[in-house]
């Protein structure tokens, strides 16, 4: 790990303002992903701003009937919150399908959204990776690509976003609240937070430099059956090969987002009307234009079968 200076911020606006004063600074909250990457010198900040003391650790009702989740709410607390368990079961289920108990106790809501890919070529500093070292190439495309992306990928990068939580939040139409170093705030739909890799896979979000996520808001509950189904190589504590987060209403209509297939939680609202026609039709529309590799083409079938399983569970539940 490279040396760095360290400061504790007292408020979100102070944190953003402090960050803007030192180049190569990073916010640290849980640190479960950042410190892992700093040990490997994939992340090399020269200054850390600890935001654990800035508040933002509460879940509050909004006037619109939804929830505002503070950026520092730990994954364990969010999954266990009675309001989330009752009205946003998809979110609890997605969180509980991710990581380990130790990690969920520390990992935060905003950190989960901003965690970086687990592409093995991003992690191996001896390999070419346009995300880690822009312009160096992508060793994954012709390499061990089995766990990697099949849609929205580019010639520069086929990495996936690893979060389960973000898949649920995408289906729930979450929005992200932020503060910038000048103190101004804004709201970003979660759909617009993560970028596709294109020619600049090193740019992963639409946040500006030193912009700090302060909260994630959920709109009022929409009812329905909430299901998160994650398919992975071992039964617990593994990233998704494919995951499906769905909210399905009694009339068979619904929303669906996919994990493990793209550089961001993958949702295509215009495809959701195909839900009534079954998993095959829905998959064809959700994954239209997919460009899998030889090693991960199985994910096309896996998405269809996982969707079929989720839709059958919803029917049984109704």
């Amino acid at each position: 790990m490279r040396p760095f200076t360290y400061l504790r911020a007292k408020s979100p606006a102070e944190a953003a303002a402090l960050a803007a004063q030192v180049s190569d600074s990073r916010f640290i909250a849980g640190g479960t992903n950042l410190l892992d990457l700093m040990k490997l010198e994939i992340e090399t900040p020269t200054h850390l701003i600890d935001v654990n003391g800035v508040g933002l650790d509460r879940i509050e009702a909004t006037p619109e009937g939804g929830l505002r989740i503070g950026a520092l709410v730990r994954n364990t607390d969010l999954a266990a919150d009675p309001r989330v368990r009752k009205d946003y079961g998809l979110l609890s289920r997605a969180l509980l399908a991710g990581a380990s108990g130790q990690l969920r106790n520390v990992a935060t809501t905003a950190g989960n959204l901003l965690q970086r890919t687990r592409c093995p070529y991003f992690y191996d500093t001896h390999q070419a990776c346009n995300k880690r070292q822009p312009g160096s190439g992508c060793a994954a495309i012709d390499g061990f690509s089995r766990p990697l992306g099949i849609i929205g990928v580019s010639k520069a990068c086929i990495a996936t976003h690893p979060s389960d939580m973000a898949v649920a939040m995408r289906a729930l139409d979450a929005q992200v609240e932020t503060v910038k170093p000048d103190g101004s705030t804004r709201v970003i739909p979660l759909a617009d937070l993560h970028r596709l890799p294109g020619t600049t896979p090193n740019l992963e979000t639409t946040l500006s430099a030193h912009e700090l996520i302060t909260a994630v808001t959920l709109p009022a509950p929409i009812g329905g059956v909430h299901i998160y189904q994650k398919v992975r190589d071992r039964a617990s504590y593994a990233f998704a090969l494919v995951s499906v987060g769905a909210i399905i209403q009694q009339d068979g209509s619904g929303r669906v987002a996919l994990g493990g297939v793209a550089h961001k939680p993958w949702r295509v609202e215009s495809a959701e009307s195909a839900m009534a026609q079954g998993a095959k039709a829905l998959t064809e529309q959700l994954l239209a234009g997919a460009t899998p590799t030889h090693e991960n083409a199985f994910k096309l079938t896996l998405v269809e079968r996982t969707l079929a399983s989720v839709m059958a569970q919803a029917r049984d539940h109704a």
Binding site: R2, P3, F4, T5, Y6, L7, E14, A17, L18, Q21, V22, S23, D24, S25, T44, T46, H47
Partner: peptide, 23 residues
């Protein structure tokens, strides 16, 4: 105004990284 303490260089990120920092 938010100010950095004197042990942190605003411009000198390379300097921050050049030597261990104690706390």
């Amino acid at each position: 105004s938010v100010a950095l303490p004197p042990f942190i260089s605003a411009q000198a990120s390379a300097a921050n990284a050049a030597r261990p920092n104690k706390a």
